[in-house]
């Protein structure tokens, strides 16, 4: 069973079985407060998961987490780090492997699964990146492993340029305001089944740290 966490936008935690059945999914939309809610959400998700699959009528099998999947962004840094830190620490506590997942991949899978028979052309997942910028990734269908095919990104663009950028790639715009943790788990499950790494262990910051270099020593009288 995979415990999945994403804090790239809100705070979302899910427990997903290896075959993709969702055991539990809880979230908070608060764009701040990731550190406040992460512990309660983790505990709730694990407690919910013990009751079996969502909507199931059969007796639950015990929850045995085997992997932790963490959404690696892009997203505002301060919140994003909370989920990654939590995922790593949870995994360390139980000696489990961590599966890093690009957060946009989860959003893309949610879009593709929402209507599997839709004629889905290229589309761009677009999320808030603060500082008058958007983060975007462009996808085109699912591959043989059931994973969204990312053809561009993740990358940043000024907000007023997003439509131009997407048009250049012939991609429809899909704005996303929440990353479903269950989809992080499902992407991780499919990556695991296919023995594929989707991204490295580093968060997808896409931006160097913001540094205000100290000014030259203050000269009195000038």
């Amino acid at each position: 069973m995979i415990l999945s966490i994403d804090t790239s936008l809100g705070t979302a935690v899910a427990v997903v079985e290896a075959d993709g059945v969702v055991r539990a999914e809880v979230s908070s939309d608060n764009p701040l407060g990731h550190a406040e809610v992460i512990g309660v959400l983790l505990r709730e998700a694990l407690a919910d998961a013990a009751h079996g699959a969502i909507g199931a009528t059969v007796a639950a099998a015990p929850v045995e987490v085997t992997h932790v999947a963490t959404g690696m962004g892009p997203g505002p840094f301060t919140g994003l780090r909370v989920g990654i830190a939590a995922g790593r620490a949870f995994a360390l506590g139980r000696a489990l492997p961590v599966i890093p997942v690009p957060s946009h991949d989860a959003a893309a899978l949610a879009i593709l699964l929402a209507d599997p028979f839709a004629e889905m052309p290229r589309f761009g997942v677009v999320t808030d990146a603060r500082r008058r910028e958007f983060a975007y990734s462009i996808y085109e269908g699912l591959d043989d492993d059931g994973l969204p095919i990312r053809v561009v990104g993740a990358a940043l663009t000024p907000r007023d340029q997003i439509d131009v950028v997407l048009a250049e790639h012939g991609a429809a715009r899909r704005d996303v305001t929440a990353i479903p943790a269950a989809m992080i788990g499902l992407v991780a499950a499919r990556a695991l089944a296919a023995s594929r790494d989707l991204t490295g262990p580093e968060p997808l910051y896409l931006r160097a740290p913001d540094v205000t270099l100290p000014s030259a020593p203050k000269r009195v009288g000038t």
């Binding site: 990731h34 550190a35 512990g39 983790l42 909370v82 830190a85 939590a86 360390l92 139980r94």
Partner: peptide, 12 residues
């Protein structure tokens, strides 16, 4: 970063 990690470690 520390608060997120500590909570998850305690729950784990």
């Amino acid at each position: 970063v520390g608060v997120g990690a500590a909570k998850a470690l305690a729950v784990s």
